[in-house]
Write a protein that binds this DNA or RNA. Sequence first.
DNA 1: AACAACTTACTGACAGTGTAGTAACGTGCG
DNA 2: CGCACGTTACTACACTGTCAGTAAGTTGTT
Lengths: 212, 212
Amino acid sequence: MSTTRRVPRARPETLAKRTEILRAATATFGSKGYNRGPLTEIADQVGMTHAGILHHFGSKDQLLVEVLKFRDRTDVEGLQDQRMPDGMDRFRHLVRTAFANESRHGIVQAYAVLSAESVTEGHPGRAYFEERYRTLRQDLRDAFEDVCAERGITVPATVDRAAASILAVMDGLQVQWLLARDDVELAEASAFAIEALVSAVLDPRPSPLDPA
Amino acid sequence: MSTTRRVPRARPETLAKRTEILRAATATFGSKGYNRGPLTEIADQVGMTHAGILHHFGSKDQLLVEVLKFRDRTDVEGLQDQRMPDGMDRFRHLVRTAFANESRHGIVQAYAVLSAESVTEGHPGRAYFEERYRTLRQDLRDAFEDVCAERGITVPATVDRAAASILAVMDGLQVQWLLARDDVELAEASAFAIEALVSAVLDPRPSPLDPA
DNA sequence: AACAACTTACTGACAGTGTAGTAACGTGCG
DNA sequence: CGCACGTTACTACACTGTCAGTAAGTTGTT
């Protein structure tokens, strides 16, 4: 189980091959999940045997972890100045991401499948997703604080719930979209929900659920 | 793969045993997912061998389908008058469900894991979840229409997005809650988000994301 | 420049395990 | 009896990980 195998020193073509493997693994884990995504299928895509994959990554568990870290790396590279926008721009960035995701079916599916799968017993991706959500929630709380400061209003207690809810609605819409792409407008719905949730924090109103 | 085996005629104790199996299967599929949830583990819980399970359900695929249908059946039984509330009560019911879910960790996990797993290639639960979300979205659209009618306002175009978003946020919060129960208030956050989304439909406001 | 010593990147074969499904057989109840 | 409910025993297979060996490259030495 996940022998700590050191990563061999990098030769340029080797590095390229590794990246190729990570991409192939993303595709396979995306379409079949981690459990049903065999190493042989990944190996076939890059023209090698499954033993070759293990040579590079040591174990399948380790490969998954590298796949997830790889995603984060390339995500940040996509940004101009290598860092997340803050304040209200952070929320605008989320909406842009939702739009971009509509043409990244494979990656969306990989994340949707793997994040849910990670809550199962002894899943190798669990720690990654725990950390990821923790960080993202904090991120959004910070953004809310910035916005509140700008407007000179005190930070409401609802920011915690709103931060979690914004991430949740994006993830949940992805699952529905993957199941029925014709019925669900991923980006439009995400935008609508994010606007609603941000509004509810900055300018709260009485609950429509309370009896009239 | 899923031989169409008919369900044998029902004797009372047999029916009870079947129910027991369905409960055990929910637990196992919940904690390990469908793919990594072996029949033997389910069989152990009810004191029988895995072949016994197959005698009752024909195949593992079929068992999963029965598990999912079973959930729906018992869900409806929980309601007093056997039918879903409508209008604004429908949304209140969702919030109540979210509160109830906080003490139903196993079932929540089963649904979270299985719904995401179902988007993978050739998953036996796929048709079920497609149908389920389609029905639920329609359900919520209907509820919105009722509420709009009551208030004498025309039904806004946003109901589609809001219906999907409400389901999405509930599902997404469940995943985060399963990963970090101490950091995420499942019920409170669900209530907050649902209120925000219903408000946004019934009484829209300018987007806070638009440049000031 | 040439050669030895070493490292990296694999392959092919195989062990080991987990697991779904089948077939044949028992056993007790209506 | 005859059927439903099981068990035991077995087949078949998918998959991960190990291992020995090979070819190709890299480094150091003279």
